[in-house]
Design a binder for these strands. Sequence first.
DNA 1: AAGTGCCCTGGAATACTTTC
DNA 2: GAAAGTATTCCAGGGCACTT
Length: 319
Amino acid sequence: MSPDNEQQPRQPELPVALPVAWSSDPVNPQVNRLFDSSTETNRTSFSTPSPAAGPRRQVGRRQLHRLQASLSDRDREVINLIAVHRYLTTRQVEAFCFHDHASPVSGARSARRVLRRLQEQGLLKPLERRVGGIRAGSASYVWQLGSVGHRLLRAGSNAKRTHEPSPRFLAHCLAVADTHISLLATERSGDVRSVFVECEPECWRPFTGPSGERRVLQPDLFLITKQDSYLDRWFIEVDLGTESINTLLRKCAQYEDYRRTGVEQSSAGAFPLVVWQLPTQERISRLADAIARSTTPLPELFRFVLPDGLAPLVIRGAA
DNA sequence: AAGTGCCCTGGAATACTTTC
DNA sequence: GAAAGTATTCCAGGGCACTT
């Protein structure tokens, strides 16, 4: 690790970044208490509607406030995570929010119960069931925000999609979420003292390009890890092998353009490492070769890992 | 303090789905 | 059709908030 990575006191230490804000009502201070978990109980007293009511509900403003006030901290965490990642499978929700139960089976059961309740309240809705999946049951459900969930969240631009996504886009969203989960698991295992994860679009970096044009660097994740007295900072790119190597190379060049602005270095002391998570060793070799042959991006700016290689890299640190 | 109601949690039995 | 894996359902215990 480089000395200029030395710990900055302003760096966050929370394990998960949940950038989506909850709507508040200045007329009703009780709703504002959603932001302060210390003033809320962890209990849910809102009466659950009957399943016959269906997931699509017409919820008035007053009813929406009651619903909002009735949500437990964990309900809000589930909804926030699904808003941030756009889509999460039941398994991923389990991994994010139901990992600390007496047994994995118990955690899974609780997750299904909570997701069902949030679906009945219109806060979440599943994508069309994938028939013929790997497993029986509902583990293959993919969840997104429901209409009530959209209304409940402040109009975040990342929480508006309601149509069925393309398989490619969906696979990428779920892969990024898996990466997020693996990073949190690294922290829970104690191998890294603290992990801060920032998702899209909060991790995006607008900047001015070489010709003065406005550009936006769009990493899949931004990550800060804390080891001893150092903070390591990382941009994460998750590739599923669906893009051409030239496309990945253009993205690398964009990282170099952003690095040359010096914005990141002036605010944090050093430019984050860019980690490409790629599906095969062969693809890693192709991208590494392409970068080495290219004159634009600095090769030392990048690291390449297979899906199971990110956690070990983060544990080793950026040195 | 005691009683009540509601919700969360987890164990066990059962039902369902996929794979071979 | 059998086996394996997983979801669903039922039930009981515990905790918390509220009322008396």
